[in-house]
């Protein structure tokens, strides 16, 4: 009886130690597919943030509309970043993967900063933020095109 109980306790332990958490390891083509989708999403979300700030400057947006739109954009941006960062890229494309990952992280920060500026009503920062978002937009498009 005692052995059976011990066996029941030890068996799952042995099984789980053999099943450690490892990130998915796609091949280069599969990684590029995921990265390309994430970059497309990032282009859309950075573009959205820039457009919201521009329309806020023109006083074309009602009360909470811009904030609500950017909260969704921020959320979606986080998902795009995660979709790439949770993959283990093949060693052969490590440099490229690192560049994409850095760009996505920068885009994530930029969308978040735009949302923060909108919530705090810091209108003076809008042109600078928009300039940064537009530059990022171009870089993300370029990165997507070269994948």
């Amino acid at each position: 009886m005692g052995r059976s109980v011990a066996g029941l306790l030890v068996a799952p332990l042995l099984l789980t130690t053999g099943c450690g958490l490892v990130p998915a390891r796609p091949d280069a083509a599969a990684w590029r597919d995921t990265a390309s989708t994430a970059l497309d999403d990032a282009v859309a979300l950075v573009g959205t943030a820039s457009m919201v700030l521009r329309e806020e400057e023109r006083q074309h947006v009602l009360g909470g509309y811009g904030v609500a739109t950017l909260v969704h954009a921020e959320d979606a941006m986080g998902k795009a970043v995660d979709s790439v960062d949770t993959l283990q890229p093949p060693a052969s494309i490590e440099k490229e993967a690192s560049h994409v990952s850095d760009l996505l992280a920068e885009a994530d920060d930029a969308v978040q900063t735009a949302r923060e500026a909108l919530v705090s009503g810091d209108q003076a920062s809008y042109p600078r933020l928009r300039h940064h978002l537009d530059a990022l937009h171009d870089q993300l498009q370029k990165a997507g095109g070269t994948l």
Binding site: D40, D41, V43, A44, G47, T48, S50, M51, V52, E55, R58, Q59, H60, V61, L62, Y65, A68, T69, H72, A73, A76, H137, Q141
Partner: peptide, 26 residues
């Protein structure tokens, strides 16, 4: 033209804000 694919309702209304401003958006 901006490469903005739609995945939220806020994005659906943005072109109206661009064209018509606050009244259009309201």
């Amino acid at each position: 033209p901006q490469g903005i694919g739609v995945d939220s309702l806020g994005q659906v209304g943005l072109p109206v804000a661009v064209a018509l401003g606050k009244i259009g958006l309201a």
